[in-house]
Design a protein around this nucleic acid. Structure first.
Lengths: 346, 346
DNA sequence: GTGAAAGCGCTAACAA
DNA sequence: TTGTTAGCGCTTTCAC
């Protein structure tokens, strides 16, 4: 319990017998301008005093916080516990730490004021933001506009069509269309014609892309997209899949395959199907998206589309940091590849 | 892209025709001292200027950041993507947001300097910390000592025996012993005598408690704890369980049940067992810990010990915030209940 | 109820 | 190479 006030640069300067600005130069890595002796004495002083820079003071003066924000808009209470979010965060955190940045997490419900999400920016708590959006398209665009009107660089994860409303955005996304195409083609080439699609109820850019891709491929094969086979209910927990699968399998002309909006849902779907006597994949093929660690180990193992979430988080953070360190940098955007992973379930 | 410098309190004061300190009083909720007219004019000025407080300036002056840190020590790159960590974080984030606090996440590898984890505290970036520790006991204790010597309130999640080395700690943990006892008793009452225990290699307080409880119950029933049946290899991903289960089932006198250090491992264990022709639970009963969302949906569904991780994160943050708002508060500690969830796998 | 004034600890321009 | 200086935007006594 250090009750004494922490040592300041002033204390270090006094002890080392140099001026404040010399210590500041030292602290900010402007080594070249320092004579070896000066450097040494400052070194010693810092060491013996246990001096650490005060980030509030530094931020106030420099208008830089060395902090990246993860701004997440979602309605689920436990959103941050979702494996996908976790992977994004892990990637961002890793890139940040390597460059000496901190990560501030701000999660906000869709119903709350838009400002909620923007607070860290408005209060100058972060230098840049990684943004995770969900909810209706209009709401997402509104946030993008606010972000674009802000003064910080920002990266949007997994959102398409950001350019018109958010020209400043660094867009980092995965090739959902490609992955979906590969997956659905795989199902069709296995003879499936009645293919269902299930997902959570809440809109989400990634989901839109996946569902769009799904429909496109079916149409390309002259397969009608049956609305009865496309269900959007519940949230992204495995349990949400259960009622949807029950409905699908109760249909007079049931599907022989189901594409699930995420692996979590796929796991629940497999369970629901087997529980009512259908076996996977012979009676019902089940496929997912994301390829989490468990997807390989469940029985039957999941056929899915691998999305490099960790890498996306990492890349987004790296791009942001690069921009912060060199403002001249043009705002690159990129799209990482997805890969079809064929296993047992489909 | 707001190029203009953001409005400051000074601007608001000028516009409202009052002094700086009056605006400050307003901003800090000291409403009583303000006349309705003053309040109104400040209100209008803030609105029309779009004024937001500058957190760096406020922190520098007030020495409070309104930020809680999640300090996590682990070796796994994707540690933050672990469901358990995610649940803690979600709980902390929720409590924080409700009280107007931000959450700063600092993850650090065990090999890095101890200081790494402490950076947010040392640089005065956070008012309080929630701590997640793993690794050898000695290392964990060293960190606890550093935390106790720091000037911020902190909560340690899931660590026992903190009191001697860290008297200031707010300890929030789950009743691992109780859960383990219930689980192992359940296995024994089902006739199992050769019960294995598998977990990741990295030490972790929770794991120690689970393993200790496991051994205690066996001994109570005069069952020898066979070292050949206790394996600690790999990390916490489902895949890590595979080689361990293979080894166990290759033993001349194989176990009839296996307790896994986490549900993720249990899922991998079930898969590994079935892959080599053993069926779960008839040939090998498999049990886990944590009770994640998927645990209920895998086949067979997992018998496990439910740990209220989200609630723990939430509680820890709430206790910390309460302390911050009222320094007089004594540092409570608590232990949440765990519950045995019996499903199909054991 | 409101205002004046003194910094919090640091950075960066400029001077020496 | 090093020192002097002027704030960054806010909170907080202490007068009035």
């Amino acid at each position: 319990m250090t009750k004494r006030r922490s040592p300041t640069m002033r204390d270090v300067a006094l002890m080392a017998g140099v001026s404040l600005s010399t210590v500041s130069n030292y602290a900010n890595g402007r080594w070249q301008r320092l004579s070896p002796e000066t450097r040494d004495s400052i070194d010693t002083a810092i060491e013996s005093l246990g001096y650490r820079v005060n980030s509030a003071a530094r931020s106030l003066r420099s208008t830089r916080t060395r902090t990246i924000g993860l701004l997440a808009l979602d309605d689920s209470l436990r959103f941050l516990a979702d494996p996908l979010t976790g992977l994004y965060l892990a990637g961002i955190g890793d890139a940040a730490r390597e460059s000496g940045y901190s990560v501030l997490v701000q999660a906000s419900r869709m119903k709350s004021r838009v400002d909620d999400l923007m607070t860290p920016i408005d209060e100058h708590r972060i230098d840049a933001a990684c943004v995770l959006l969900s909810g209706a398209r209009a709401g997402r665009r509104r946030i993008l506009q606010r972000l674009d009107a802000s003064s910080v660089p920002y990266a949007v994860l997994d959102e398409t069509d950001t350019l018109d409303v958010a020209p400043r955005a660094i867009s980092v996304r995965a090739d959902q269309a490609g992955g979906t195409t590969a997956l659905v083609e795989h199902l069709i080439s296995n003879g499936h014609r009645r293919i269902a699609f299930i997902a959570a109820r809440t809109p989400w850019a990634v989901l839109e892309q996946r569902f769009d891709g799904f429909k496109t491929v079916l149409r390309r094969h002259k397969i009608l997209v049956d609305p009865d086979l496309c269900l959007f209910e519940g949230d992204w927990t495995p349990t949400s899949a259960v009622p949807m699968v029950r409905k699908l399998l109760a249909l007079k002309s049931r599907p022989t395959a189901v594409v699930c909006g995420s692996d979590l849902l796929a796991i629940g779907a497999m369970r629901a199907a087997t529980d009512i006597g259908f076996s996977v994949p012979s009676d019902l093929a089940v496929a997912g998206f994301d390829d989490f660690d468990i997807s390989e180990q469940v029985s039957p193992s999941l056929t899915t589309v691998r999305v490099p979430a960790w890498e996306m988080g990492r890349t987004a953070a790296e791009l942001l940091i690069a921009r912060l360190e060199d403002a001249g940098k043009p705002s690159a955007s990129l799209c990482l590849n997805t890969t079809l992973v064929i296993r047992e379930s489909a």
